[in-house]
Simulated scan of single mutants.
Amino acid sequence: MDGGGRFARSLTPRQTPAGKRTGAATGGNQRGTRGREPSRPTAPATDERTRLFDRAVIGGRRFFVGLSASRALSCGAGTWLTLALFAATGVYGLERGGHMPATVEAMRDMGDAAANLAGFRIANVNLAGQNHVTPGDILATAGVKPTSSLLFLDAEGARMRLEELAWIKRATVQKLYPDRLDIQIVEREGFALWQKDGKINVIARDGTVIAPYSDDPRYIRLPVVVGDGAQTNVVEIVEALSLVPGVRDKVRAAIRVADRRWTLKMRNGIDVRLPETGLADALEQLALLDQQKSLLSRDITIVDLRLPDRVSVRLSDAAYEARQAELKAQAKAKKGSNT
Rank of each mutant, 00 (worst) to 15 (best):
R108K: 01
K196D: 08
Q195M: 07
T141C: 07
T89W: 09
Y92P: 01
R170V: 06
A115V: 07
A140R: 07
A192F: 05
M110Q: 08
A128G: 08
L94F: 05
E156T: 11
I138T: 03
T82Q: 12
W80Y: 11
R161L: 10
Y92H: 14
L139A: 07
G136Y: 04
G190L: 12
A158H: 00
M160A: 15
M100D: 07
R161D: 11
Q184I: 10
A142C: 07
A106E: 12
R96D: 11
V91M: 12
G190D: 11
L117I: 10
L162K: 01
D179E: 15
G93F: 13
G93N: 10
G157M: 06
K199D: 13
K169G: 12
E95V: 09
L162G: 04
E156S: 09
T134Y: 05
G119Y: 09
R180P: 04
Q184A: 15
A192V: 11
G198D: 09
L83H: 08
A171T: 07
V104N: 08
G143R: 00
L150Q: 03
L150M: 08
R161G: 08
L139K: 00
G119R: 01
T82Y: 05
D109L: 15
T172P: 06
N201P: 00
L139E: 09
G143I: 09
H99Q: 12
T141D: 07
T147I: 09
L94V: 05
A106M: 09
R170A: 11
L151G: 01
G157F: 04
K199N: 11
Q195A: 08
I183V: 09
A158G: 03
L127N: 08
F152P: 00
L165T: 04
V104C: 06
L153R: 00
G98S: 12
G157L: 08
D112W: 01
D112A: 06
A128I: 05
D182Q: 13
G129R: 02
I183M: 03
V91I: 15
